[in-house]
């Protein structure tokens, strides 16, 4: 199995200028490799840096040390040294990110929001909207909601719209930040099935799944960040 992501001695500190220069030392030299078609689950108590690591992998957080290398176009690209354009291209070609919260323009219909990533990748509007409708349908979003903005939806519905959006144009690696957090058992199972299917169709996943059963169903490799100091010395 070939690695598609190689994290080496990654460090992230937050310097809070407006809070008397407080420093949060969140990631302390973690190293990790992720292979093709692998599901990696980040574990550990809240505040340990799981979300921070995901955001660092997506390039949202700028790190203070170490490297994050992606296998793109038959060579390693270090995200921590990449230009803004290279990061944007890397995201477009390779990384999907499903945040915990949906952030969209108000009043834009759900179907358009879900179809957008595929259209951006050059798919026809018609095909993208068809797939968006299928995905929403699978995730039990009633069709009469398609034309409404998801900002009026419940938390669980928003969560599913967010997931559908990521799956409308799946990338080689998808980062999930608690995708099942606010879902009922039926929808939870559907989402897990869809994630499993994502892997089967050749993609890797790094995610935060709170429920141990979820991790088990997905057959995820667990990385416990509460022992990251040990991980970093390994």
């Amino acid at each position: 199995m070939h690695s598609i992501l190689k994290i080496t001695k990654l460090q992230k500190k937050f310097l809070l200028h407006n809070q008397n220069g407080a420093v949060l030392d969140v990631l302390r030299g973690i190293s990790l490799e992720v292979g093709e078609r692998e599901i990696v689950a980040l574990c550990g108590p809240s505040g340990i840096g799981k979300s921070s690591l995901l955001k660092a992998l997506y390039g949202t957080y700028r790190v203070n040390g170490g490297t994050i290398e992606y296998w793109l176009d038959d060579q390693w690209l270090d995200l921590t040294r990449a230009t803004a354009r290279e990061i944007l291209n890397l995201r477009k070609m390779m990384i999907g990110y499903v945040s915990q919260f949906l952030r969209v323009i108000p009043r834009v219909p759900t179907l358009d929001i879900v179809a957008e990533p595929a259209i951006e990748l050059g798919e026809s509007e018609e095909a993208a909207r068809q797939r968006a409708a299928d995905l929403l349908d699978k995730l039990r979003i009633p069709e009469e909601l398609f034309s409404l903005s998801p900002l009026t939806f419940s938390g669980g519905e928003q969560q599913r719209v967010n997931i559908a959006r990521a799956l409308s144009a799946p990338r080689k690696l998808t980062l999930f930040d608690e995708p099942t957090a606010s879902l009922d058992p039926v929808n939870r199972r559907t989402v897990l099935e869809m994630i499993a299917h994502l892997r089967e169709s050749g993609n890797a996943i790094v995610g935060i799944f709170h429920d141990a059963r979820d991790r088990e169903i997905l057959g995820a490799r667990e990385i416990d960040l509460s022992i990251q100091d040990e991980l970093s010395h390994a």
Binding site: H17, K55, Y58, T60, R62, A84
Partner: peptide, 21 residues
Amino acid sequence: EGLTDQVLEDPQSAYSQLLVS
């Protein structure tokens, strides 16, 4: 300067942090 999500979620300078907060 940086990617939009970088600047808004991980602002580095004191001023940007104040602006975002």
